[in-house]
Design a protein around this nucleic acid. Structure first.
Lengths: 192, 192
DNA sequence: ACCCTGCTGAACACTGTGTTCGGAAAGGGG
DNA sequence: CCCCTTTCCGAACACAGTGTTCAGCAGGGT
């Protein structure tokens, strides 16, 4: 039955997330996960090929809602394009901490990073003016600082609201581009 | 014999670095390392407690020269304080790629990151003005973009000189701070 | 030539992985 | 309610890698 399958997979995913927050991803064994989820060993391997696979299945779920949320914000003409990301992280703190935080797995951080990069790339490339550093450099600069701020904020439980974080990031990011490319206020408008 | 000991440790460290570039840190077994270094198994464990320990002993060596080099630049009143970091990465490409790159270990990236953070923190805190975002936010923004650019540049073999990289980074970084802090203050009061 | 000191490698116990398979349990359709 | 299919269970197994131990070997230093 489909319901049974989904239930089992959810149990396993949830157990993994809890364990990540407790002891960190790399200290977890498959045995830990199936004990916590109260699921048979062979059942685990019937659903996932290994621990990483289980983890990645969680990322899929998360990045789908993230991308959707970001797209909605962008298409809705939101003045701050990164607000959606900070809001999503705030609403799914538990998930983000486990997946993108310190105790999470490397695989995962790379995954999250790549997702945000992909979303940002589409938009940024058409928005960046000419006459400054190569786009790839500016892109790397802006994306790594965004990912850095996002994960730091969640990981360290800093007491700023998503709106504050997004504002601060955008202010820093926009003026960096503005200064480095030496353009007039037109850039600010095109971002809004 | 002191010389014999040092030789053995060097053989192991070198073997590890080569293997990291070949197959990535997490795919390496202790057996791989000692085979490559042609060293007995028990000898390995006589010198290092495990694989991570061997890796960290390499970081020590690297971060000592990096810190020294950065301190010299800073004390010499160098106009571009991050140039030393880009130069060091350029001169020790092999090491940086293995330690701070994609194929390197997580432990290591965190180590490199923390080193750069520590060095930057001392300096930044006294330099940042008031009236903008909280220092910790700006600091995180600047440091993660610096680390991001550094590792991306080395990892992807982008064809820019250390001087160009340092220049581009400083341009982006300075104008971001300048722009974000040079405000009438009204905006930031609501954040703080 | 003789010591040390450090190196060797086989053997071992142990932890964790991923597979297999007979049988139990759970749910849906008649 | 029973039957049938799907799913789950868990013990047993082979395997890979870790870290330890120990008797013996090698070679540089005095």
């Amino acid at each position: 039955m489909d319901r049974r399958v989904r239930r089992t997979r959810d149990l396993l995913r949830r157990a993994l997330l809890d364990l990540i927050l407790e002891k960190g991803y790399d200290r977890i064994t498959v045995q830990d996960v199936i004990d916590r989820a109260d699921v048979g060993r062979s059942t685990f391997y019937a659903h996932f090929t290994d621990k990483d696979d289980l983890l990645l299945s969680g990322l899929e779920e998360m990045s789908v809602t993230l991308e959707e949320q970001m797209r909605r914000h962008l298409e809705g003409g939101d003045p701050n394009p990164v607000l959606a990301a900070f809001r999503h992280a705030d609403q799914h703190r538990h998930l983000w901490k486990a997946l993108a935080g310190k105790r999470g797995a490397e695989v995962m951080r790379d995954g999250v990073r790549r997702r945000i990069y992909d979303i940002g790339l589409r938009r940024l490339h058409s928005v960046l003016p000419e006459g400054g550093p190569p786009h790839e450099v500016t892109f790397e600069f802006l994306m790594s600082s965004l990912v850095g701020l996002l994960t730091w904020w969640i990981d360290e439980d800093r007491p700023y609201t998503p709106e504050q974080m997004a504002d601060m990031y955008m202010r820093l990011a926009i003026s960096s581009v503005h200064g480095a490319y030496d353009v007039s206020g037109q850039f600010w408008k095109s971002v809004q």
